[in-house]
Design a protein around this nucleic acid. Sequence first.
DNA 1: ATATTTTTGCAATAATGTTGCAAGTTTTAA
DNA 2: TTAAAACTTGCAACATTATTGCAAAAATAT
Lengths: 137, 137
Amino acid sequence: MIQHADILKRNGLSVTASRTKILDLFLDTAGALAHADIEKNTDGAYDRVTVYRTLQTFVEKGIIHQIPTIDNSILYALCKQDCEEGHHHDNHVHFVCIQCVKTFCLDDVLVPEVKLPKGFKPNEASMIVSGVCIDCK
Amino acid sequence: MIQHADILKRNGLSVTASRTKILDLFLDTAGALAHADIEKNTDGAYDRVTVYRTLQTFVEKGIIHQIPTIDNSILYALCKQDCEEGHHHDNHVHFVCIQCVKTFCLDDVLVPEVKLPKGFKPNEASMIVSGVCIDCK
DNA sequence: ATATTTTTGCAATAATGTTGCAAGTTTTAA
DNA sequence: TTAAAACTTGCAACATTATTGCAAAAATAT
């Protein structure tokens, strides 16, 4: 409980029940979470709007980052400590298992650089690999 | 007009006004299109449902492919000819311009392979690079 | 302890996506 | 060329997902 509050305070956020609980979920989860997962795991204890706003706040503060998926849902996952407010450095590859449908942050696999056509200037890059994960193998 | 019908027929689809028009849009567009773009550019001529179903059909037939984005919308773009029904081979990098917000298919830039941790077996990979495009440079 | 600031939940609203079905269109085949 | 068969469209209804304003409640600062 103490470390959660610390993470929140360090980012200038009030420590509230919903924020603590949602942060808890992320710290307990290996993979990424969707908004629906959070509603399910909090058993409706917090209003849908509160969950939206909490996720948005966490993203803004660099506590979590977003992962786009092909089925039009956004996943959220914890950022490593080198994320700062407004500056995400989640330059690692994400892995989606086609069997268990979980999403993993492969923190040790960095997104490789690619050579772009003339005139295109890169800023950020994200990469998603799908396949079979270590648990479903 | 003739080539549009050919593309549709080749994929076993009836040639209808909405399909021809929407295919038209894709052939005329350098970047990717969202559902909303299509509604805008057809000026409400076709029902929202028809647009959804047309896009879905085109994806199934391998005429277009989907690109996930961070803002929770799906973009669609033409597949190159090596896409077949049920088998997408859009293994190229997508580029999102942070100024004009257009999405480009960089058909000549292939998604590089990465070395995954033990136990993870890759199947497909997608990569999105954001930055400044050739027009906004 | 109390004032100030921030967060939450409710209600209302908007945007987005899906399904069944009757009417209309396209294709098939005689 | 036309009639039957097959497929597609649009409407209506509904489901899901997301956003905003505002008053009440909670957390922080003094």
